[in-house]
Design a binder for these strands. Structure first.
Length: 428
RNA sequence: GGAAGCGUGGCCGAGUGGUUUAAGGCAGCGGUCUUGAAAACCGCCGAAGGUGUGAGCCUUCCGUGAGUUCGAAUCUCACCGCUUCCGCCA
């Protein structure tokens, strides 16, 4: 959520910055709604003030045994008038709030201008794609004999669901374990296990609601009608970030650094026909996520650090990648600044997104009322950051493709061997 | 699933219809004293919002939401959460 003060004082500049990400801010509509809010709020508070002082007079008079009928008569009509004023104000305020919740975050000034992913800027590359002396397969064909079973996944749950068996299942687990251990033991994150089902409030906090309900899976309890809608998490960013909602942290406990390995559930409503082959785009996939709750002065340093943490995973796995600075038109709804990591997939002969690390600024904090008490004693909004470190399914894809051998086996990257019973390859 | 109890500021906790402007304590901050610290003493000390150049003034908030009332932390209803006991259960 944007700072409403900024909209009041400088809506033209806000509109210009949002235009860079393809969002049209209706400035006139805001200004008239805001004018309405102002007069209604002033009137309501004025009436409340009258009621309070009259009621106090009645209390005092009664205590002194005086006649109160004169004041009572004076107050009689106030009730209805006040109720009407309160209702009118609440209606306008709620329209204003609901509208504010649909406005995306402002891109940071360092974000390159651009309309879509073609405007993203490569920051650096690491590693050299391997050259193969045999005809390579994609991960679907490499994985099938090793236990990557799309057919059974579809039988159980439909398209975009997968069963992993045997060595593939273990390799998948090994990847997640390796990532989690690296972030907790070397990068200072605190391991977290969180609910996979959350209340809708929480999704307003991180920005999935109200705009992106169609991307989520909504769940119902058996038997009774749900008191409140609940959803499967689409990333553990949601739960880890919301852990600090509605709280005031101490400035010296920042930054908080959380990591979790969790499944992620996405309806992929807008993705019909895209990435239908293989593991790239699933309704259910695992991800090791990093979240930082940072002091505003340090959030950009934290973002660089977090990108580095994700890079360490790729480097240790020996997977070539590049770092992309997302342009204004390609960033997510709540992002202030985003770097994507794209891993080399030889069968597609291209780099594909495997991690996305964002500084959300105070956008989520304002929605969540997540604050900290600064050294000067003032409460301020924290900055929130999140990043994949990494998407486990896509990392599995990258390992299968980059480490495939002519005989159909797959070499296990050295760092994973302790998690694989010491073996150096699977299959073949 | 059944029963009972409870929900008040960062924390503990008083308050059961009206000068409550939420007592008191702890923690925190500033000061006096001290070589320094502790102790003692003095003072400050919830949040969100509106309005104003400003000092300030005003509104809202006692789990959430409705209701009763001139007036609600306090009364009524619903919901949420927590605790304890019983039942069931990985």
């Amino acid at each position: 959520m944007l700072d409403i003060q900024l909209l009041r004082s400088n809506i033209e500049e806000v509109a210009a910055r949002l235009a860079a990400r393809g969002y049209t801010l209706e400035a006139d509509a805001f200004n008239s709604l805001e004018a309405e809010r102002k007069s209604l709020q002033t009137r309501m508070q004025d009436l409340q003030s009258q009621r309070n002082s009259s009621s106090k007079q009645i209390g005092i008079a009664k205590k002194n045994g005086e006649d109160v009928s004169a004041i009572m008569a004076q107050v009689a009509s106030l009730g209805d008038e006040l109720k009407a004023a309160e209702d009118a104000f609440a209606a306008v305020q709620s329209r204003l709030d609901n509208w504010l919740l649909t406005i995306p975050n402002l891109p940071h000034e360092s974000v390159p201008a651009g309309e879509d992913e073609s405007g993203n800027v490569e920051v650096r590359r690491w590693g050299t794609p391997r050259s193969f002396d045999f005809d390579i397969k994609d991960h679907v064909d490499v994985g099938a004999p090793l236990g990557l079973d799309f057919e059974t996944g579809a039988k159980l749950s439909g398209a975009r669901f997968t069963v992993l068996r045997a060595d593939i299942a273990r390799l998948h687990r090994a990847l997640a374990q390796f990532m989690l251990n690296t972030h907790t033991e070397q990068h200072g994150y605190s391991e977290t296990y969180t609910p996979y089902i959350v209340n809708s409030d929480v999704l307003y906090g991180t920005g999935q609601l109200p705009k992106f309900a169609e991307d989520m899976f909504r769940v119902e309890r058996g038997g009774e009608a749900a008191a409140q809608a609940q959803y499967l998490i689409s990333t553990s960013e949601i739960t880890m970030t919301n852990m600090v909602r509605e709280s005031v942290l101490k400035h010296d406990e920042l930054p908080l650094k959380f990591t979790a390995h969790s499944p992620c559930f996405r309806s992929e409503a807008g993705a019909y026909g895209r990435d239908t082959r293989g593991l790239i785009r699933q309704h259910q996939f695992d991800k090791v996520e990093m979240v930082q709750i940072a002091h505003p002065d340090h959030s950009f340093a934290a973002l660089d650090e977090m990108v580095g943490h994700a890079e360490v995973i790729l480097q240790q796995l020996g997977l070539p990648y590049r770092v992309m600075a997302l342009c204004s038109g390609d960033m997510g709804f709540g992002a202030h600044k985003t770097f994507d990591l794209e891993v080399w997939l030889p069968a597609q002969n291209t780099y594909r997104e495997i991690s996305s690390c964002s500084n959300m600024g105070d956008f989520q904090a304002r929605r969540m009322m997540a604050r900290f008490k600064d050294a000067d004693g003032k409460n301020r909004y924290v900055h929130t950051l999140n990043g994949s470190g990494l998407a486990v399914g896509r990392t599995l894809v990258a390992v299968l493709e980059n480490y495939q051998n002519a005989d159909g086996s797959v070499t296990i990257p050295e760092v994973l061997r302790p998690y694989m019973g010491g073996r150096d390859k699977i299959g073949g």
